[in-house]
Computed example of a mutant assay.
Amino acid sequence: MAGGDGGFAGAAEGLNQVRSQTQWINQQVGAGKLALDPEVAERAAKRVEEEVRALAKLLRRTDQITRLTGLGDYPDGQQLAQRFKDKAQHPDSGAIPLVNELMKVLMEQADAFRAAAKDYRSTDDQIAEDMQRGIQ
């Protein structure tokens, strides 16, 4: 494996970008700077979950990558099959671990959207209470 990255350096960078986005959302929600309309937040969360389901479907087919056949019993064929398997399963940079981590981060992002909706509801409730106190 060239550079030990399994050929997925770009995918790992993309995962880091999604992770950064999720952290930013959580930070903004935690600081009270992001509150989303509950309908908008739920649509965003569901869209993210659709992506997770698509990735899960893809992972169910990864056994085809890890059980590559047809390259023969010669050492060269076996080495090539092993390289494909390594690219799929390498713990630090293989396709399967990267997709699993992306799914985890996306689920955290869906949770962050829902947390932003809770803040919106809390703010809305607080405003309603304040207005009611002012009327009385």
Rank of each mutant, 00 (worst) to 15 (best):
M1K: 06
G4P: 01
G4V: 00
D5K: 12
D5W: 05
D5C: 00
G7K: 09
A9E: 14
A11H: 11
E13N: 01
G14A: 13
G14W: 09
G14V: 06
L15S: 04
Q17P: 01
V18P: 01
R19N: 02
Q21S: 01
N26D: 08
N26I: 01
Q27L: 00
Q28I: 01
V29Q: 03
V29T: 05
A31L: 08
L34I: 02
A35P: 01
A35V: 04
D37M: 06
D37K: 06
P38G: 04
V40L: 03
A41S: 08
A41Y: 05
E42P: 01
A44W: 05
A45V: 05
K46P: 04
K46I: 02
R47M: 05
V48R: 03
V48Q: 00
E49F: 04
E51S: 06
V52A: 04
A56V: 02
K57R: 12
L59V: 06
R61L: 10
T62M: 12
L68S: 04
G70H: 09
G70T: 09
G72E: 07
D73V: 09
D73A: 14
P75L: 10
P75H: 10
G77L: 07
Q78N: 10
Q78W: 05
Q78H: 07
Q82E: 15
R83Y: 10
D86Q: 15
D86P: 06
A88D: 14
Q89R: 13
P91N: 08
P91Y: 07
D92S: 15
D92A: 15
D92F: 14
G94D: 05
A95R: 12
A95Y: 14
P97M: 09
L98G: 09
V99F: 13
L102W: 06
M103D: 06
M103H: 06
K104R: 15
K104H: 15
V105F: 04
M107W: 00
E108N: 11
E108F: 02
Q109R: 09
R114L: 13
R114N: 13
A115S: 08
A117R: 06
A117D: 08
A117Y: 12
S122A: 15
S122Y: 13
Q126C: 05
I127L: 13
E129G: 06
M131E: 12
M131S: 07
Q132F: 08
G134Y: 14
G134C: 04
Q136W: 07
Q136Y: 08
